[in-house]
Design a protein around this nucleic acid. Sequence first.
DNA 1: CGCTTTGCCGTACGCTGTACGGAATGTCAA
DNA 2: TTGACATTCCGTACAGCGTACGGCAAAGCG
Lengths: 223, 223
Amino acid sequence: MSAEAEGAGGQEPLSRERVLRRALALADADGIEALSMRKLARELGAGAMSLYHHVRDKEALLDGIVDLVFAEIALPEAQAEWQAAVRAWALSARAVLARHPWAIGLMESRTASGPATLQHREAMMAVLRRAGFPIRRAIHANWLLDSYLYGFALQEASLPFAGAEDFAGMTEAVFLPQLSATEYPCLTEAATALLQEGYDPAAEFAYGLDLILDALERDRRST
Amino acid sequence: MSAEAEGAGGQEPLSRERVLRRALALADADGIEALSMRKLARELGAGAMSLYHHVRDKEALLDGIVDLVFAEIALPEAQAEWQAAVRAWALSARAVLARHPWAIGLMESRTASGPATLQHREAMMAVLRRAGFPIRRAIHANWLLDSYLYGFALQEASLPFAGAEDFAGMTEAVFLPQLSATEYPCLTEAATALLQEGYDPAAEFAYGLDLILDALERDRRST
DNA sequence: CGCTTTGCCGTACGCTGTACGGAATGTCAA
DNA sequence: TTGACATTCCGTACAGCGTACGGCAAAGCG
């Protein structure tokens, strides 16, 4: 019984919020490409065309659920030390994007940012400015951090396995056999190394994040 | 007259390569969502179902053109100094992904990497290993660099303007007016700053890239 | 000659997003 | 009370999608 079970007959009236939330749940459950207006309406116990009274387009619906995802990310705390604030924000954001992998690829085509997205960018810039980054450096830092976050999430989403246990099985059973060791020596070396000590996306993310934070701190001090 | 103009009657026989190349051209011209099997076949002067003799699926076709895009990226030179090699590779990759922005979002759902993709990963690892990165650090470095690259390309693709001249117009006409200065003070500050000195994605990318390369070099020496 | 293989494609099925027009319901003025 | 109107809902229809299926023509081969 995920959410409410309302197979036939939507007693509660439709609303933009209800539509968006249900769409988000559907995307999480079956993937973004399985989200259709008809299916969403059926899930809500409504006719397909009824949705269009609460959402202009399917595009607008996608914009809406992407902004819902961004709203799940913890805002950076303004009064905290900047590296700690940024670190907490980034870790939260990675976890959220790992929960909703379809959201990352959606950003590419979506040019209009919703209120939650804007709020995050604003809070991020505020933290950096308060920490002493000059405007231009703050912009650079913002781009760098966002790029790392989105890129990492994108790569993580495109991994063909879900957890660490899947990884071991997949690597041994699929990757290594089809990876010619003579053609790709370094890749097989990397795969076997990862196989031995396991692979944790969160730890991998933290490693790069700390490298970046150090580099930014050095950048900040050199003004 | 982009490519050949063969409106009616495909004289040359179909082939996997011809199909993929035409699909790539179509995606570049009209965006990935406008690429349909029927339209592609029409463009090639063939029936829709003929394509399926050279490509298993539409999925396989997308896999194919993504790998074509990767093949456009310059491989890192093995004998060069590692920072220079990585830098050249990254700059080339960003330019290529900016030319084919649809390819970035496509990676997310595509789990099977083609030969060109594998070749790049292999060459990258080889450069890092030869430079003295221990296996584990090389893997970290690879993830970090790929993440930055993909994330930056993703953000660049989602910008609502194409060139620097568009940027000035868009910012002044659309962003700043709709950006409440009291609600988003830091963002408006950033927008006006960028408006004054212009905005160049390639320079922005290079800035973060050099920060990362410095950090990785420090990481490498601390072994 | 017959036979199989190969490349091609016409048709059809079930799906998609959504334009359009009509029906039901709630709200307010006269 | 009655009429007018706005809001919400939805049934139908249309163009387009990916592709399963079966048929057609030419080529290669005994």
